Simulated scan of single mutants.
Amino acid sequence: MPRKIMLVFGTRPEAIKVAPLILQLQQHKEDFETIVCTTGQHRDMLRSVMDVFGLTADYDLDIMQQGQDLYDVTCRVLMRMREVLKEAQPDIVLVHGDTTTSTAAALAAFYQHIPVGHIEAGLRTHDIYSPWPEELNRQLTGRIAHLHFAPTAKSKEYLLAENIDETQIFVTGNTVIDALQWVRRYLGDNPTFKQNLHRELCSLGYDTQRLIDTGRRMVLITGHRRENFGDGFIQICSAIRDLRARYPEVDFIYPMHLNPNVRQPIHEVFGEDLSVYPNLFFLEPLEYMGFVYLMQYADIVLTDSGGIQEEAPGLGKPVLVMRDTTERPEAVESGTVRLVGTDYDCIVKGVSDLLEDAELYARMSQAVNPYGDGHASERIIEVLRTSSY
């Protein structure tokens, strides 16, 4: 009888990283019954990823409410998972990474004595307030999990230091590289889809002819971290404002997160009319395909994201991380990532160095990506097929 594998996720980054695993599990119907459960933590952005990969949910907890906080998310996931787990009765629940969805879903499974598999296990900063709340989330999920799918050997070392049984830890690489390679193949095979992406980007205010005809350099920017709300984002926006004035020959593209705590400082620094800057483009959130497409053209990625620290090096793009700590030290050690925090001077210097120092740029862009070869999903499936749980 096929084993019942339930995957629970709620945010766009989670969906991106579990999508290739779901697609491959669905190809092994003789071994697995794949059950997809979404929480709807990021409702609109989650739907766009599901559509890209052709995924549908067997269960949708629909927890999203205006103005919800971490108390709300945790309680709603925990309570609504109770009935889903009783009905579905999975053999194992797989959760991903460090979101509140992951931790609450893992706890719900634990309460019903259902084993948990943790994808992207073992990432650590060892500071529970940085990133917040993600660092504590992944530590808590790690204590609950029965199977730990670590992306790197260093992640495994962190788990061993926490007395996790070595026989329950499996170094697989990161499934985000699987997703990235899937998207690159899809874009390469679908010229019509690329044309549609160009139209979408133009409708959002970015003239895509700049990518093709002018050969202009590009800095691609993202920001969403809670710990950067307030003065951190003011510093970030001030640095971007002055960098775009210093380098008029460089395009700065900033797809804005929907959170008001991200958008308010943008308007505070740049004013209400964001269209007046000739080399600065504020876009509405991009679907995953569109973002990967832009990332392929970018010269530098400036971000506070976790996953982009893994994705961008896979495309040969140097990454400047607007955080003081990272749970992905492998990227820093390999030379693909530098930490610049949210300090104005550090951000300006980091971007300027990469734009002006060709040798530094070459070192960072040509460093080896430590996060895998695009076969993480296959390794996870083999563990699920052969392990007892």
Rank of each mutant, 00 (worst) to 15 (best):
A331H: 06
N137P: 13
D98A: 03
D373I: 10
G142P: 06
Q209P: 11
A367S: 13
D251N: 14
H118E: 08
Q181M: 09
Q168A: 14
R328F: 02
E14Y: 14
R82H: 15
L94M: 05
D31Q: 13
N196A: 13
Q235M: 12
T214M: 08
V337R: 06
V95D: 07
R216A: 09
A312F: 05
E327L: 00
T172P: 02
F170E: 06
Y297S: 15
G316H: 05
G335E: 00
L61W: 09
I212Q: 14
S275K: 15
R82N: 14
R328I: 07
E382R: 15
Q65M: 11
D127V: 06
I266S: 11
G230K: 06
Q309Y: 05
D189Y: 08
V340W: 15
Q41I: 03
H224Q: 06
D324F: 15
C75Y: 15
G307M: 02
R328M: 11
S130A: 14
F229D: 00
I221F: 00
H257A: 12
K17I: 03
A331K: 03
N279P: 04
L339H: 12
P260N: 12
A298N: 13
D324H: 13
T34A: 09
R246M: 12
S238I: 04
D58N: 10
H267S: 12
R363C: 15
I119A: 10
S305L: 03
L61Y: 04
E359Y: 11
Q89M: 06
E134K: 03
H224K: 12
F281Q: 04
H198S: 10
S155P: 00
H28K: 13
R217A: 09
Y288N: 01
Y361E: 10
R185M: 05
D127W: 11
L220N: 01
L258P: 05
D178A: 10
D304V: 00
L61Q: 04
D343R: 14
D273G: 09
P2D: 04
D62A: 13
G314Y: 09
Y247E: 02
D373Y: 15
T34V: 01
K4C: 05
M64L: 12
L147Q: 02
L46W: 06
F291Y: 12
K156N: 04
T342V: 14
K317W: 07
D343L: 14
